[in-house]
Design a protein around this nucleic acid. Structure first.
Lengths: 214, 214, 214, 214
DNA sequence: AATGAATGAGAGTTCATTCAT
DNA sequence: GATGAATGAACTCTCATTCAT
């Protein structure tokens, strides 16, 4: 099992590199095998098929993300700070693991199965952390009770993901600093959810905030 | 030219329907042709290849979006209201053109060319409207000067896009109301950018805004 | 009919140029039409199909060759001189009409119909001139009676044709002088057919050459 | 490697049969595969594409020709006899391997790549044997020094080739005996190159032949 | 006569996956 | 477990030809 997991790991690493370089569709299983130093058929001893290999990359990286996120948030108590830490952690991972990020951000979307059939429960678990922070902040009276944690969670992820995609796609142009994006996004959502925030003229959602001043 | 553009339109409409039903990869050009009521070869009189057909769907729909957006924003003066109108318009379009949205949200992302080579200038023009609103609001003293319009623009789009994807992908589950998501997202960003917003404990970005009023 | 033949001519000329540049198979009828300045469909008012167009090029050029050959041989009486004049004329045409030669030498062979079904009667007429010269020489006692005019005719044509192909194919390399080849070939066949020629040690064919010796 | 080369051979043999029957263009790769008893895709494990398969037929047959030619000439010393043996061998091969000859004589010529890009080095090696014989004969004083071995070589090949084509193409008509053609061609070239041959009246090339006459 | 938009048949090739060794 | 040769299904695209105008 030691050798087994070793070979499995090598195949996943090879897949990340190959998929990041050519894209999922354009990558050949035989290229992954060659890069991993195994025979084509060996891939199928560890993965059901090509798509399963891609999903396994996803699962493995999400496991790492989940563990890393817990560490990044441990010791941070204030929900507003947790949001900032979340954004910094997530985009820091994108920056530090560009190939893996490229596969997750871009290539994963090329899998029909991923988009239409697969239930990315590990992504949900990852984002559930954000929803929990929101509810926590609401319970503490820091965040507006009208904020829908479900919508906020996907919005936050969508914002980070889109910036990550733009950063990854900026192949040759000088990439903008992801830390800056992380702080901007975190600031936006923290202010956007915080009690005491001013709304627009007819900000019905924030009806509660009318009496609040600066 | 009348007949030409007529036929081109029919092919694009057929492509949207077929791609939405089967997915881009699984769709055969001959199916699109059959649905459009033309011969296979005719497709290639109007589009370079299958992928060009997909990208043309994108271009055509973005043209419609741009025109619609201008209308939706015309007569709205307050930047905060403009953001709300933007969100409602965008997600309203997703709701009212589910097939097209499915193609743009899901299938388009599976095109390597789109992701890696194509420069979606019409999308940039669309989003530039948001950046302009942000700058306008900053000029009027309504929005925090520290907000980066570039990051805000992509965050806003990412948030809406992610919600749209989740809505489109919720094939069988009861879809949540997109109007609700639109208002939530708009409120989040309006509050998140507005002067007078409270920040977190060490909200360095907004430190400047303490003395700013509406 | 004046305009007709004018347009027909323009199409044939365009076909020669296009076929010489791209090869017959790779040439598109629409390219010939474009070069001739007519619509695609117009081609089919003058030629049954693409292959008929190629064969028409052949026929037209063979007509010109036949006329030219008669002129080149007129006034030449000695069969040995006629052979020399034939070779010079033929390879001179190749040199002076490289595009047409290229089509005849190379592209024509890409037509299955030409090779397998078409009976190139004009080529036979052209070569019959050579056979006639041979028989004339034999009647005059200049050429060996054992020489088979049929074999000699095709050998002569094959030799010239092969040299022409090599000259045409030598696209970039400095082409060798065709006049030299013409004289060499003519000399070879004249000597090879002439009475009094020495044969090999057991030259059974030339049993007549009693005086042969090394 | 045994099995590999075995399968490669089977595919080439199948290709010869199929190409000879239907012509190269009209033959389907799947037909070759079926005849060889392999799957379509297997063809592409041994050959880059359909055209490469055709060129490989050429290479393989040329290898066989080269070996056979050496054998046919071994033990023959007199250059005049060698030329006769060459012609007999070559046309004997055409007669004994009609299908292969048909492919080489007719179908190969329809390949643009063969005609315009491919450098048929094996053909050159084959013909170089002829040029060597000529030079040998000249060195021995048997052949006229004015004969250009390059032109003679291509002329000889062109003559044999043309006769072979005519023989192959005479699908229904009773084929003429190739042995007769071989002897005729050999006799023609031997006499045409031999010292002591009579020339035409102004046979400048043969200035050496002072004693010409009947 | 001339046009050129429309037709639609047709096959080479790739590559994920299997399975005998 | 590991191999890698063999499989074979699947589909885009081209372009000669037609025919309504």
């Amino acid at each position: 099992m030691d050798r087994r997991s070793d070979k499995r790991e090598r195949i996943i690493d090879a897949a990340i590199a190959v998929f990041a370089e050519n894209g999922f569709q354009a990558s050949r299983v035989s290229d992954v095998a060659k890069r991993a130093g195994v025979a084509d058929g060996t891939i199928y001893l560890y993965f059901r098929n090509k798509e399963d290999l891609l999903l396994s990359v996803f699962e493995q990286k999400m496991d790492m993300l989940l563990v890393g996120l817990e560490q990044a948030l441990s010791g941070v108590d204030d929900p507003r700070e947790q949001i900032r830490a979340f954004a910094r952690f997530h985009l820091g991972q994108v920056r530090d693991n560009r190939e893996a990020a490229e596969v997750l951000q871009v290539e994963l979307r090329q899998s029909n199965k991923f988009l239409k059939e697969y239930r990315p429960e590990k992504l949900w678990a990852y984002l559930a952390v954000f929803a929990r922070i929101v509810r926590d902040g609401q319970a503490r009276g820091l965040f507006l009770p009208d904020v829908d944690p479900f919508v906020a969670m996907w919005s936050f992820f969508g914002a980070m993901d889109e910036l990550a995609v733009q950063w990854v796609l900026a192949r040759k142009a000088p990439r903008f600093p992801l830390e800056h994006a992380a702080d901007q996004i975190a600031g936006m959502f923290v202010r956007g959810m915080s009690v005491g925030a001013p709304g627009g003229p007819d900000a019905s959602v924030q009806s509660i905030n009318l009496s609040e001043g600066t």
